[in-house]
Structures are given as C-alpha cells and as structure tokens.
Nucleic acid binder design. Sequence first.
DNA 1: CATGAATGAGTCTTCATTCAT
DNA 2: CATGAATGAAGACTCATTCAT
Lengths: 191, 191, 191, 191
Amino acid sequence: MKLFAQNGYHNTTVRDIARLSNISIGSVYDYVKNKEDILFLVSQKFFATLKENVEKALRGIDDPLMKLKATIEATLTVIDTFQEYVLITYRESKHFKKQDLIGIFRQESFFIDLFMNIFKEGNEKGVFRMNDPFLVANLMTLMTHCWALKRYSLREYSLFRFKEILIEFVMQGIVGQGTAIQEIGTEKAVQ
Amino acid sequence: MKLFAQNGYHNTTVRDIARLSNISIGSVYDYVKNKEDILFLVSQKFFATLKENVEKALRGIDDPLMKLKATIEATLTVIDTFQEYVLITYRESKHFKKQDLIGIFRQESFFIDLFMNIFKEGNEKGVFRMNDPFLVANLMTLMTHCWALKRYSLREYSLFRFKEILIEFVMQGIVGQGTAIQEIGTEKAVQ
Amino acid sequence: MKLFAQNGYHNTTVRDIARLSNISIGSVYDYVKNKEDILFLVSQKFFATLKENVEKALRGIDDPLMKLKATIEATLTVIDTFQEYVLITYRESKHFKKQDLIGIFRQESFFIDLFMNIFKEGNEKGVFRMNDPFLVANLMTLMTHCWALKRYSLREYSLFRFKEILIEFVMQGIVGQGTAIQEIGTEKAVQ
Amino acid sequence: MKLFAQNGYHNTTVRDIARLSNISIGSVYDYVKNKEDILFLVSQKFFATLKENVEKALRGIDDPLMKLKATIEATLTVIDTFQEYVLITYRESKHFKKQDLIGIFRQESFFIDLFMNIFKEGNEKGVFRMNDPFLVANLMTLMTHCWALKRYSLREYSLFRFKEILIEFVMQGIVGQGTAIQEIGTEKAVQ
DNA sequence: CATGAATGAGTCTTCATTCAT
DNA sequence: CATGAATGAAGACTCATTCAT
C-alpha cells in the first residue's frame, strides 16, 4: 500500500514490494497469485476496516443526524489511517480485473448506501429535506475522500478541524438552515 | 485523452494512440516530445478551456451568489466535455514530471482561488456565512469533479439534474437556509 | 565530415547533415544514395587531396631521404586539414559496405606503397638499412596519422614541431645515425 | 568484445551479445547497467591486464634499454590477446559517457607516462638522446597498437617478427646509430 | 528542382513470473 | 518452505528513407 501510494501501481515493482516486506520475490507469489492481486488484497483490508469501524460507531445511535455525524467521523478516522489506499483506489482502479472491480464497486456502494439510508431516514423523520439522497450520498462520500485526495493542499489542517468544517458545511446544506458549530458540538438535534 | 481515460496511462501504448489518431508512431513524436508530454498537452487544453468558459460566464455578474452559480455551471459544462481529463488528472498525476506537476498544481489552485474569492466576497457582503472559505472551496471543486469521477454510478443522471441538485446542496449549506430549486432553475445555462 | 568526426557516424543524423549544409533532407538524397555514401564521398575527397599534394611535393626530387621528408611533410599538411577524416576512417570503417571498404583499402595501400618504395630505393642506394620496408611503411603511415588520432594529447604542439620531432625520430631510426634537426629545418614546407 | 570488434558498437545488439553469451537478454542486464557499460567493462579488463603484465615484466630490470624492450614485449603480448579491444577503443570512444571517457583517458596516459619515464631515465643515463620524450612516447604507444589496428595488412606476420622489427626500428631511432638485430637479441646494452 | 511530413522497422530496456536448487 | 537467477515479451523512442506537393 505504501509503495503503491508513493509511486503508483506501475512504478512499483514486485521486487520493491518483496524487499520492503523483507521476504523473497518467490514468497510474495506464495501469498498472491498476481501483482494485481496485491492491489486487491489492500482494498479488501481497507473496506473491512472501514466497515468494522463504521458499524461500531453507529451502534446504539438512533437519531439520523447523530448517525450522520458518527458515520462521517468514523469514515474520516479510517481514511486518515488508510489515506494511501484512497489515493490508490482513485488512481489505480484501471488495473483491477473486471472481476475484482465488481467486488470493489459493490463495497463502495455499500457506503453510498450507508449515507443514503441515513438521509432517507432523516427525510422520513422530517429532520432532512433532501430531494436526491442518492446523489448527495455520492457527494458526501467524495467529500470524506477529500481528506486523502487533497492531502497536500490541506497539509496545514488537522483532522479535527477538517471534520468540523466538513460537518458544518454538510449540515447547513442538509438541514437547510443556519446551524452554528457550537450547537453541533453540543450535539443537540436541530429541530 | 480517450485512451488514457479508458485504459489508464500505462496501459495505453503510443502505438494505440497513433493508431486511433490515424497517424504513424513517428508522426506522434513530431508533435510530442514524450508519451508524458501527451498527458501534459491534454491537461493544458483542459485548463485553457475551463478558464476561458468560466471567465466568459462571470462577465458582468456582481452578486456573489449568482457568481457562484455561474461558476458551477460553467465548470460543470467543461467537465462534461472533458470528463476523461478529470479522471486522468486524479489517476495519472504520478506520471507527470515534477516540472509539469507544479504547472498543473498552479492551474488547479487557480480554480480553488476562484471559488474562495467568491466565498470571501459573499462573506463580506453578508450573503454567505462561512468559517473556512479555503477548505470549502476545495470541497466545492471536488464536488464538481464528481460528475466525472462517479460517472458510472451517476449514469442515470442528466447533467442538468446533477447541476440542480449540486447547487441546491451547496446553496443551502452556504446561505444557511432553504433555497428553492425553482429560483435556481430560472438561471440561464451558461454555454 | 565535421559532424561525423564530432559525434560519430551513428550519432550523426541525416537531418543534422542537411541542416548544417543548409539544404533539405530530400536534396541530400539527390546527391547521395545512402547515408553510408556520404562517408564514402568524404573518404574519396581525402584521398584525392592527399594523392595530389604528395605527387606535387615529390616532383623533381631524386634523393630517397629528401623524398621521404617531402612525403611526410605533404602527408602531415593534408592530415592537418583533414584531421577529422582520419578519425573517421579509424572509427567508422565498420560502416562501409564491403564494396566501399575495398576501395578505401586500395587507396590506403597506395600510400603504404609510396613509403615502401622510397624505403626500398633508399636501401638499394645504400642510404637506408632496413630489414622490412613494408612493415616500417605501415608504422610510418600510422605515425603520420598520430597527428589526428592523438589530437587532444598533443594539443600543445604546433604542426611544425610535431613534424620536426617525427622526422627526427624516423630518420635516426632509418638512417641509423644522428641526423641534426637543423638540416631538416632548411627544407621548405610543402604547401 | 568479439562482437563490438566485429560489427562495431552500434551494429551489435544486446540480443546478439546475449545470444553469443548463451544467456537471456534479461540476464545481461543483471550484470550490466547499460549497453554502454559493457563497453566500459571490456576496457577495464584490458587495462587491468595490461598494467599487470607490464609491471610483472619490468620487475627487477634496471637498464632503461632493457626496460623499454620489456615494456614493448609485454604490451604487445597483451595487445595480441586483446586485439579487438584496441580496435574498439579507437573506434567506439565516442560512445563512452564523459565520466567513463575520463577514466579511460587517465588509464591511457598511464602507459604514455610509462614510456616517457623510461625515455627520460635513458636520457639522464646517457643511453638515449631524445628531444621530446612525451611526443615519442605517444608515437611509441601508437606503434604498439599497430599490431591490432593493421591486423589485416599484417596478417602474414608473426607477433615475434613484428616485435623484432618494431624494436629494431625504435632502437635505431632512439639510440641514434645502427644497432644490429643480433646485438639486441643478445640483450647487450648498446653503448 | 526542392521540400519536409510521414513512415515503421528496429533498438534498448524493464519487470512480472517461473522454477531449479 | 524459501530463494533469487533466469526468462523474454512488450513498450518507448529514433531515424534513414520515401514521395506527394
């Protein structure tokens, strides 16, 4: 993952991977079928971690707005550790075989669905007023990825600050009325 | 651009490019110094078009909110024609030489600044209430790119619909209150 | 010739030659059949000049020792102007076609013969005592080429100085006794 | 070395080298960084051998004249085995990188110095009478190379015969008076 | 008669993958 | 079970040569 993120998939040789892993090239091929397979394994790990973290974060929360915030926070935490993976996904998706791509696509849509369901639930409960939950879920996902994609431009920002501003921006957009940061901080539901 | 977007930079051979262009390999190298150079030329074209369109769209507009809408619309129109380029930028940036990367980075930040200045102006005029215009400008840019990045997921959407929803989402976040779609709908599409 | 000497045959492109000659590539091919042909033409010119100069220098001289000196002087004068050609002959001979090579070889042996005949004549007249005129003629030829081949090492030397030392070295070897430099000095330079 | 000498550097493909060496192309690049590197390696080997042989030959010899003979003999023996290398040096020097060229140049001047020092010593001891030891050392070196450079013309000669004639020619030039071959053969110092 | 755009064969070089040890 | 030497297919790039204009 480190090498793929640093140099890209094609500029990373299997020899490099073996060396960094302190195993022989031959051994690499004991664990994976392909160079491509390595990319896939990395993706599996990322999604597993993300799923796990988000599910844990959502446990016991009912309020859609709280759910949304928890999801954003959990997602961003994982993205922070797996920054490199996000980059790889955007950059190297072309190198996945069709078979693998479908798998990844399914996993990605899992998270779109996650956001979408929260939005729909919020709409039903009258907390959100959203015309197109699916599209906004896509925008939402992309914005969490921003932390990884624009790493360099945002190098002065702390993860906490980024989280705050993102939530503020999203909330005001979703709820449709001024929501002060403090209010969000105190976690009062916006009526 | 088509081939790079379809197969990625590395999986596109110069032979492929020559064949699709109906010229010989040798001729490709009459126009271009490098394979990498092709990538760079594509990027130049994209930014030039984007700049031109946005500047034309902003001409004569004063109100920050109208400016924002005009910029989003112009940007999306260009992104729609240069969809493939946006993909390439995210995917193949690793292949640019440092020299070229700096150039691209500068051009990208031109657009971040564009949004940021509109936001700042809006803040001053009391139209927007935004804590971090720079960060939101980054999110903003990324969201326009969404049209290209999530092309497959959004294949059922029309550009018009996407534009509407995006603007609605953004506006409500910025203005901090419900902005009816109809109002936005009355704006003329920037050509 | 200039380009071949500077960059070698292979690193000189026909385009380079055309540009330096201020004619178009197409025109180059009006004068020569091949790139290789250019090399051959250059060689022709060199030998023609050498032949002409030596023959003029020998006119009216009878004494073998004077003949030898005159030949050396004439040869060195031509080599000085055609320095680059000598380099090319040693370096690029591999690029000549068999047909051309034979021609060049024949021309080269013309000069070996020239020296050899002077040596033989000197032997008969009792001026020289030489066991192997042919071999020494080869060494002799090579030593005149030294002026071109070791150009860089000898950059501090004048052609005149080189000529003096060479003749002294050769004479003492051939005549088998000290030949004062002054005597040689009185010879008129071959134009 | 064989291929470079036979066909020249540029007309020798790495594929040719691999084939003749009975290894794969890939393996060639396990031993060598570049095609150019092969040329350099060959040169290294040549000079190492030459240095070694000459130093061994000079061991225990004091008399400058004997030293000269020993050096010529040792040099010619190495040149005989590395004939092809000498050709390559003259022909392919253009293909060395500047860095490598400097190295080669330094090594070459090592041998010029070798001869020059013998000449100077001989001058001091009154054995030689030489006006320009440096220039003659250059001629001397070139004449030993003759065995490789004029291989074809001299194909009827044995190395022994060449050596004899060369030494005779050189001696008479240096000592400045008739020195019968027999005398040299018995290795008596020329008074 | 001159031009130079177009061609594409041929070269060096890299690197995923295999497999004998 | 680990190793890493060996393989060779594939790709970027150059440049002599042609020929329509």
